[in-house]
């Protein structure tokens, strides 16, 4: 893996709806050096013909939830935590609809 550039760090931050100060971006780049050294450890492991392990236990289940209404939040509880609310809707600055 190559060292990450500041531009890449900012781009990732932007994709994640995060801002970074100059100093913070530098810190992340420095952290990547440690990460890259750790990746060297990973690279020493031969994983050809090994599948990704995504779940701790892999026997498939056969459970499905029955299609029965079991829980609706009262509107007061839906909106209780809403930062901005109007006539039962959550409100945000106008978004240009795609």
């Amino acid at each position: 893996m190559e060292r990450i550039s500041k531009k890449q760090v900012y781009k990732l931050a932007q994709q994640l709806m995060l801002r970074l100060s100059e100093e913070e971006a530098d810190n992340i780049i420095a952290e990547f050096d440690t990460l890259l050294k750790q990746l060297d450890l990973l690279d020493q492991i031969d994983t050809s013909n090994v599948d990704e392990m995504i779940y701790p236990f892999e026997e498939p289940t056969d459970f499905f939830r029955e299609d029965i209404v079991d829980h609706v939040l009262p509107i007061e509880e839906v909106l209780y935590n809403a930062p901005v609310e109007e006539e039962g809707y959550f409100v945000i600055p106008k978004v240009v609809k795609d």
Partner: peptide, 10 residues
Amino acid sequence: LRKRFIIGSY
């Protein structure tokens, strides 16, 4: 946390 999110996203 922001740093970890960025590393995760990377």
